[in-house]
Design a protein around this nucleic acid. Structure first.
Lengths: 143, 143
DNA sequence: GGGTGTATGTCAGGATTTTGACATGCGGGA
DNA sequence: TCCCGCATGTCAAAATCCTGACATACACCC
């Protein structure tokens, strides 16, 4: 039972690769007590402290409501914190706690290993063209 | 607010492209009264008649239970049919009905337009390398 | 100042997906 | 023959995610 004509579709291999990556990340993050959405959230907050719930949701391609439950979980775990009142407008800026930064640091090592593995199997010279192609597809389709 | 350092990750652009493709397919299929999982199911059955629920689930990267829900919907809509008893083992071979084939044919035209658009924005000479890279990633990560 | 538009957070409800569990049917080996 | 492993279909429950809706807060224009 080999894959025959179906994986001729770009859409199919795209989904296949994304599913494999998601599974690999879930497995790696389970040891750290994190889910993939939680990790994405922490990483984004590390690069851009003070991002709001809605901004995080757009970054992760989920709804505001979904991201909010992720944030509640991280908040209960003491990994992120939000002020009680909004300093401007309604947006509540989210920030990592010291514990959140530490958990992210440890998890990041394993996740980066996955990324490194992908680069390795492709060959470093293929990474930039691949990234460019995927970005072009997303922009053209209205991402 | 431009994406800066985060989309340096292959994993991120992968998710981005896949999300954009999913949104485009949802929009195109809505006019045909189909969801993306339903369409994937029909297309796979057209290429491989008699596939079982479990095989379809693996092809679509979802659980057996999820695929079963999709199949029930298609069965109620008269687009696929399953025998009451299994001819061998427990696997029930699923087949398209005439109406299912017709709905698929019409929907396929619009979905193929999306695929054609992706090929166009990339340039035809980039398609094969992209497909090869994504397949390699999936296989290396255990997809 | 007042009205409008946009963005955000949040609640309620439902749809979708998953994990866990169990019984059934087939095959291989002791 | 009997037992064990494996795959499949199915049920139950929970987790996850989404759509629709509403109130609030700011920016803009008249």
């Amino acid at each position: 039972m080999t894959q025959d004509e179906l994986d001729g579709s770009v859409g199919y291999v795209l989904k296949r690769a994304q599913a494999a990556l998601r599974a690999a990340m879930d497995a790696a993050l389970r040891e750290h007590g994190l889910t993939t959405p939680q990790y994405v959230c922490l990483e984004r907050l590390d690069q851009r402290p003070g991002l709001s719930n809605a901004e995080l949701a757009r970054n992760a391609f989920v709804s505001r409501q979904s991201m909010n439950v992720v944030l509640r979980g991280l908040e209960e775990g003491g990994l992120v914190e939000r002020p009680a009142r909004a300093p401007h407008g309604r947006a509540l800026p989210v920030r990592l706690t010291a514990e959140g930064r530490e958990r992210l640091r440890r998890a990041h090592a394993d996740v980066f290993e996955i990324e490194r593995r992908m680069v390795g199997v492709l060959g470093p010279e293929r990474v930039d063209p691949l990234r460019a192609d995927l970005t072009r597809i997303a922009e053209d389709l209205g991402g």
